[in-house]
Each structure stands twice: as structure tokens, then as C-alpha cells.
Design a protein around this nucleic acid. Structure first.
Lengths: 204, 204, 204, 204
DNA sequence: AATGAATGAGCTTTCATTCAT
DNA sequence: TATGAATGAAAGCTCATTCAT
């Protein structure tokens, strides 16, 4: 009888490389029990490795949290870049952007939950990095709103900044009420929220 | 020679009764450094008492957190009860309710920050209590929206539940961007957000 | 049968107050196994308390080390102050001072061993404090040498600074060779070393 | 096209053979941050290799420390052998020996610092080896002193053992005060300290 | 000769909570 | 009503060392 080969893809869960596995289980645990409610021991146990292994790949528990943030944020930012630079009126592109950020947030709900619950626990320097990335998203989104105002499509009496705070608040809170097994798909929620946003912005 | 009386209102800062003082400083510290980032020692130091005193008034650190939640929630709930039962069309009352929840949230920003950041750290039984109170707020708010839909004032193609999730998300995130020393007063933010909500709901 | 009363002075070693007991056993352990070779667990086990108790009295393991330093240093400094201000020629007072620093160092040999082996492990700010205290000792001692040079008793061709470095080196190394159960008493070593110092300084 | 040869003296800083480079950087790091304050990772990083390489050449971190000791000690021992067997009176040879041990110690100050700070961290068997070598140095030095006493040049009322402890203490502490960029050269310090020693020993 | 992923035991420190007074 | 010494469990992190390659 042949010995189980070491690179087995069996159910021991050793499929994926250690580094990614760690990030994956950490995300799940952070979302379930919070950042401070999850110990490094919990993470490495769930990943089937030892602490030393984790510290081989990540400088600290904070680092792990930062990576969770970073991955979703940069994906959403690149989507927004593409959409903003694409064809269509300001309203059309804002609709696309709004629907996308809702949809991708719901597709990565665990990350979002972690993100908006734990940001304040990062050390200052990492918080600054994250805020800068979020600010870039905010500003890009705001530019779309301003385009629509300039075009006369959107009402001019509410500052674009406030509008963006308003809508991104909605996005950031998705984790607090959305349940994947509920009646609405991510895309449907995206469409409905886009409707509410555009309706609120529209000139009569 | 008279001894300094213990209940002195003098410069030791011991003005308010110990119990309230503890809740007050706890709220501030939780908002600044997070629930888990604040130690019982921090709290009692800031309140100028010792641990024993805190455990005399509150059963645990969790208790303190729960009290923070409870106070604002019950105030907002009683406001909503009053407004909903008051005069005016559904739209008028929804406008009042929306503006009120934004305004009172901004007036108690520290509590809101603590609330939405730390809820998940409470033990399950306390979380259940809090969720029930929030659910009552949600349902009452939703009833106002449904009234407006029934009256033909609001569009019928977006479920009232979704609308409430949408708007309360905005409220719950106020702490993440509003700065008291910024250009807008709580009332102004309340009006603008109410505009965006009603605009999004309005039938054309 | 009567229960053993809690404030027993029995051989459980709980005689002295916890705070002093901790300092005492820490000194002994640091001297035997080095600062980094001694764990906080070792210390509290030897003192018969728990870690929490230690951190109640001392801010850190470093703090404990600093206290060891501080106690002997300040005793020696006060001795030197007294001697320098006392009666007698410069030579007589230098003899007294030299004999005293040797004697008191040998009487607190564990502290000296810890001191000169572990100083460099303290955080910078604490090192600065210690160095300042040592510098004060050095300077006071040097003043005595200079007095003797001015009086023509001591040779003028070797700077007082170098002489002090020379003699304090001898003192600082006592721990590396002196054994309390050896043939010489602390006072005898003090006298012999004083002879060697004064002989080396004397003008012919 | 020729491949870059591996033993290149190029800008990678890989000039010296790995084994010596490791010893060299280890000495420097031990002197700067202490033995326990220096991790194997620190050493191999500074040497530009990996841990595996270090464990290929040295059995352990302790081994590295022992090598540092051994090198200087054996050099000084061979100098002393030469001097003692050389020409001149006992005083002349003692002067030479004293000046030499000060000078060579200052020329290898890092090693001395490491030596006298970290000896106690070696495992017992290695400590025994080192102590034996030091004892041989001590005894050889002591023989010179005894020669001078027998010749009537040095005072007979202070045991040679004590004298050697006295002077080697001075040598062993050089690292605690000497600064290479200070006013005195190693040779000058050697001469001054020799003066102080011989003066202290001289019969009047 | 050299790599670097991984181990596992150990470290210092923090902290909510208790309890005798 | 309030103190503060003391507990004990758990936390994040470090590090010398091993070993398959």
C-alpha cells in the first residue's frame, strides 16, 4: 500500500499554500468573532499550522488584518477606475459604480464586516495607509457625482461630498443586515440601492 | 478645623455621582480606544475611583457597554413613538423621524461609535436584548414607509424593509465621517439626508 | 486542631512583604542566571506569588532590574558624600572612600554582579538614569584625587579621570573573582586595594 | 557571456569567506546588543546569508560566542608566554606584559566587551574550558609578580593573587569606559595603567 | 554549501475579576 | 461605599533549531 503522498489534496485542509490559507481562515474568524476576539492561536489552529509559521509569513496579527482590507479595497478601486474611464453619461457610470460597489461588497461580505469593525484597531501608520486608499475611492466616486451635477442631471444643492458619505455609509453597513441566504441576491440589492441613490440625486 | 467633606464638588472633579461618572467616562474611552482597547483600570482611573467601586455599581465591563447602548436607543425609540403617533402625512412624519434619528445620533456621536463598533463583543444574551430593541425601531420606521407607499406618495417597487436598512445604514455610519468641528451642524446633516431619502422614495 | 494562621512567619518564606521579597529573589536569580536567563515565572515562583502580583508592584521586569541598581548605587553615593565632606587630608579621605566602595560592593556582591552584567539590557531611558548616577559617583571620587594632586601628595602626570576609571574598574570586577567563603574578608580586600591605589598615586 | 563567479568580491559585500564573516558580524552584534539581544536571524542577515549556512559552519549560537572568546584569549596567552620567557628583570617583563594586555584588549575592544558580559551565558562545559584558559593567563601573570617579590623589587605584604585580580580587573573593564575616539591611544592607556600598577607594587 | 519553511517551547505582559478589609 | 493586593488565564510574539531540498 502506498503512503499518502505529502502534497495530498485530501481533506486535511492542506490544499492551499500556507500563506493564503492563513489569510483565508483569519478573514473568516475575524468576521465571526471580531479581530480582538480571535487569537493567533485560533487562526493557526484553524489553518493547521503553528504560530511560528504564521509569523514567518506575516509580521503580526495586525498585518493579517491589513491584508484583508487591502485585497478588497484594491479590487474595488480598480473596478471604479475602469468604470469611471468607460463610456456613458455620468448617470450611467454612477449607476454602474454604485451597483458594483454594493455587489462586490456583498460578494466579499466577510471582508467587509472585518473591515468596518476593526479598522480602528490597526496601529496608526497602517490606519493612515488604509484611509488614504479609502479616500481615493471616495474622491473618485465624488468626481462622478460632480460630473452629473455639472451636466444638470443631479441636484446641485447637496454637496457631492455629503452624497458620497451618504451612499458609502450604506455600502459599509451591508454586513450588519444582509444575509446571503435571504431573498435578495447581491446584484438585486445593488440595483435597488442604486435606484434609491439616483432617485435622491435626480433633479425633478 | 473642618475636614474636607467627601462629597465635595471641589476641584477633584468628583462633581457627578460615581455611577453616572463611570458611565460617562466609559463611553468616551470606548469611543476613543474601542471596547477591548479600554481596560477597567483606564475607566476607573479616568473616573477617579478604584476598581472595587466600579464593581459595586456594575456587574461587569460588559454591563457598562450595555448601558451605553441602552440609553441612546431608548431615547430614540421614544422619539419615534411620539413622531409616528403625531399629526401630519406619512411623508411629513417620515421626514421628521429621519431628521430626528440623524440629529440625535450626531448629538450622541460617541455613543453611536461605541454602539456599532462594539455590539458584537457583548455576550449573547445581552446582544439579543439589544437586537430586539433595534428591531422595534426598525419596524416602527418601516411602518411609516409603508404608510407612504399605501398613500401613493412613495414608490412601491422597493420593499420597505430594504429602504429602512438603506437609511439606517446611513445613520449607523455617521461616526465614521462626521466631525463636530466640520462645516455642517447635526440639524443640517439631518435635513440633507432626509432630502436624499425622500427623493429616492418619491414617485415621479 | 488549629489552622495555620495566614500571617505565619513559617518557612514558606512569606515573612517579608511581597514587594521586597520580589526584589530580593530577583536579585539573587539575576546574579545566578543572568537577567535574560531569569524568567518572570522563575521570580514569582521563588517569591511564592503570581505574575499578576509582580506586575502590581513593578511596571516591568526591567523595573526590577533598575531597582537593584538603584539601591546600592544610592547607598554608595551617600557614603561618598559623607566621606568627602568629612575631616582629614585628601589622602586620608581617598583611603576611606576607596576602602568603603570595595567593602560595600563586596557586602552586596549579588547586586554588583547583576549591575555590571545587565546594565546594557535596560531600555535606553533607564540606562541614562543609571549612567548619570554613576557619573556623579565618578566625579566626586575624581575630585578627591584632584585635591591630593593639588596638595602635592599625588603624582600630577596621570589625569584624575584615568585614575578613577582605573580604580572603579577594580571595584566593578569584584564579582568576577571574589568568593565570600575565600580567605579574605571584604574589609581586608578593601585595605589591600586601597594600598595598591595609593601606592600607585604617591609621589616618590 | 561569463557567469558572475560566486566568490566574487563585488558589491554584494561577500568578500570574506562565509565562516569568518559570520564570526566577525556576530562579534560586532554581540558587543552592540549583547548575546541574548542578538538573534541568529540578526547575525545571518548582517552576514548576508541564511540560517542554514550558519548551522553548516557552527553547531549553535553558543559555538559562535565561544569562538569569539577563544581567539583573543589565545593570542594574549601566546604574547604572555613570549614576554615571560624573554630577557629583562621581573619588573621590566611585568611592565611589558601589563602594557601588552591593555593594548591588545583595546585593539580588540568588541571582543572584550562580549567576553566579560556574556561568559555566564555559555553552557557549563564551555564555561569550564574558557575559565581554564583564563586561569592559565592569571597564573602566568602571577608568576611574574612573584619573581619581582622574590627579587625584592615588589612589596611582599600583598599576595600576588590579589595583585593579579586587581590588575586584570582593570583590563577586563576597559570596554566600560574606553572610547576609541577619545584622547588616549591604546598604547598610552597601557603605559599609564602600567605606571599605576608598578607604583602600587614598588617597595619604597 | 546553502536555502527557507516550519516547529514548539518559551517569553513578557495584560486584564477582568475577586475578596478581605 | 470603597479599597487595592492578588489571582490566573490568556494573549501576542520570539527564537534557536531542524530538515527536505
Amino acid at each position: 500500500m502506498a503512503l499518502r503522498s505529502r502534497e495530498s489534496t485530501g481533506r486535511t485542509g492542506n490544499r492551499t499554500p500556507v500563506k493564503e490559507r492563513l489569510l483565508h481562515v483569519a478573514t473568516r474568524l475575524f468576521a465571526r468573532h471580531g479581530f480582538e476576539g480571535t487569537s493567533v492561536q485560533d487562526i493557526v489552529d484553524a489553518a493547521g499550522v503553528t504560530k511560528g509559521a504564521m509569523y514567518h509569513y506575516y509580521g503580526s496579527k495586525d498585518d493579517l488584518l491589513y491584508e484583508v482590507y487591502h485585497q478588497v479595497l484594491s479590487m474595488q478601486l480598480s473596478h471604479l477606475d475602469e468604470i469611471a474611464a468607460g463610456p456613458g453619461t455620468a448617470e450611467q457610470r454612477l449607476r454602474e459604480a454604485a451597483a458594483d460597489v454594493v455587489r462586490t461588497s456583498l460578494d466579499n461580505l466577510d471582508d467587509m464586516i472585518v473591515f468596518f469593525r476593526s479598522l480602528h484597531m490597526l496601529p496608526d501608520d497602517k490606519q493612515v495607509q488604509v484611509r488614504a486608499e479609502r479616500r481615493r475611492y471616495h474622491d473618485k466616486f465624488k468626481a462622478l457625482v460632480e460630473e452629473g451635477v455639472a451636466a444638470g442631471t443631479f441636484r446641485a444643492d447637496i454637496s457631492a461630498d455629503i452624497v458620497v458619505h451618504y451612499f458609502l455609509s450604506v455600502v459599509n453597513q451591508l454586513g450588519s443586515w444582509y444575509r446571503p441566504d435571504g431573498p435578495l441576491s447581491p446584484a438585486e440589492v445593488g440595483d435597488l440601492f442604486t435606484e434609491l441613490l439616483i432617485g435622491g440625486l435626480a433633479t425633478r
